[in-house]
Design a protein around this nucleic acid. Structure first.
Length: 404
RNA sequence: GCGUCGGUGGCAGAGUGGUCAAUUGCAUCAGACUGUAAAUCUGACGGACUUCGUCCUACGCAGGUUCAAAUCCUGCCCGGCGCACCA
């Protein structure tokens, strides 16, 4: 099915400097660097696999580190094989978890999967990507076959994994189904005849499972490239369960704002892992910041670059202007406008508009001096009557009220 | 099935009859400061009201004991660990 296209494809690029950069930038671990280098320089068109489980409707820029790496490989002319883990997603990977992951429903997974190819398309040229759902082959396996696969692994290997061991030691439950996960991911590699598999560095164990199973099926074991995991907006590992992600589907404004809120130390790592900005430029930025340049300016450049990558140049430009307006110049001209009857309590307006979640919260905010009339005084009366004004709560929330 | 330990606020995890709307950490929100929604420091963090107070709802579920229960008792549901049964 790819015969026609491959005839048209340009030959594989084996320029040493390009290959070397790919093997270095953002890469955490490689199973056999020499072997991989040789493969990449051989001129053979490699099949490079990445599996993504649709455990949330959004991909975040941490997951996209692998996608960017794939993009590099794609540009060299290799075949990218993208697998949506609609079966593995149901089972749930425990690699990065310190507790059992709940079994997702098939429907939830299918729903999440819907936009994944589209999201991946922000980074990859999807017209040249081979796309699969792993239910295609995983749902056909019989117990006989699964048993045979399972025989390649020992329980000890699994139990020795750090996070599993920690859970067992702590008296936490480890479900048998969790053991199945590496088998499934490993079999994916067999099914698509992967030459190389990419994954986050928490995937090491699962990636190795692919090698084992491929050997069992008389395939040459895949090479493995793991990419670094990046930290989230709060400086902890970026993970959907911690709500510190920057999603590919975030609006330009949100994305820009979230990037501006990362700690300064993450600026350079983000440039390296989340953008395709050239190394020279990144080193330049690093030096300048060391010399005392204001990191904010580079963070803005970073934010703009990333927004442009997932949206458009125009969006990026606009997000930056909005950010400057709102946070640097404290402009509130874009505050939402609501009409209310005269003699309404201010707190009622805020609660009704969902700006604050309860009257108690409003009271607390007033008590801490967070509520103010723009251009005038702070609100200090809990029973303040709403007036024709723009109100602000903290730095982010604002509301313009019109009395009718 | 038996034994045993446990189920607490968004999460983790204290509390084991009254002083508990519940210590603490993380997350969140606000204030100060600032170079930014960073860092740091300070405060708040169930709801309602006539707000230095009162009332309501909350500690797996349902009952019970008590002037008083997250805390004790009974039953149920769910989980860990150990043992066994069956094959």
């Amino acid at each position: 099915m790819f015969g026609l296209r491959s005839l048209k494809q340009k030959p594989v690029d084996t320029e040493v400097s390009k290959v070397e950069e790919i093997l270095a930038r953002g890469v955490s671990q490689v199973v056999d660097m020499e072997a991989l280098r040789k493969k990449l320089l051989s001129g053979r068109r490699l099949r490079i696999k990445l599996g993504i489980d649709p455990t949330s409707p959004h991909l975040h820029i941490g997951r996209a580190v692998s996608l960017l790496k794939l993009r590099d490989f794609q540009e060299l002319g290799h075949t990218i094989v993208l697998i949506i883990g609609d079966t593995t997603g149901v089972i749930g990977d425990t690699s990065d978890k310190d507790s059992e992951r709940p079994l997702l429903t098939r429907d939830a997974v299918r729903e999440n999967a819907k936009t994944y190819f589209k999201q991946a398309g922000k980074v990859l040229d999807m017209s040249a990507v081979e796309k699969h759902y792993n239910s295609t082959w995983l749902s056909k396996l019989s117990y006989n076959e699964i048993g045979e696969h399972a025989d390649q692994f020992s329980v000890a290997d699994f139990v020795a994994r750090d996070n599993i061991k920690k859970r067992l030691d702590g008296g936490k439950r480890v479900s048998l189904r969790e053991i199945l996960y590496p088998l499934m991911q490993g079999y994916d590699s067999v099914a698509v005849h992967a030459d190389v598999e990419i994954g986050g560095n928490d995937q090491w164990f699962n990636l190795l499972a692919g090698r084992k199973l491929q050997s069992r099926f008389n395939q040459e074991p895949q090479d493995i490239v793991t990419t670094n995991l990046i930290l989230g907006t709060d400086g902890r590992k970026m993970s959907s369960s911690w709500g510190n992600t920057i999603n590919l589907t975030d609006s330009p404004k949100d994305m820009y704002g979230k990037i501006m809120s990362i700690p300064d130390e993450l600026i350079v790592p983000y440039f390296i892992h989340c953008t395709r900005v050239e190394n020279n430029r990144i080193q330049d930025i690093e030096k300048k910041m060391e010399k005392g340049d204001n990191p904010r300016d580079y963070k803005m450049e970073l934010a703009k670059t990333i927004v442009a990558l997932y949206h458009t140049e125009k969006d990026a430009q606009k997000s930056e202007e909005d950010f400057v307006k709102k946070f640097q110049n404290k402009d509130v001209s874009d505050a939402r406008v609501v009409s209310v009857k005269s003699n309404t309590l201010l707190k009622d307006v805020f609660v009704a508009e969902g700006v604050v979640s309860s009257r108690n919260e409003f009271n607390r905010l007033v008590a801490s001096g967070a509520v103010s009339v723009v251009g005038a005084d702070k609100v200090s009366d809990l029973k303040e009557i709403a007036t024709d004004n723009t109100y602000k709560i903290g730095k982010r929330r604002s509301l313009t009220i019109e009395i009718i």
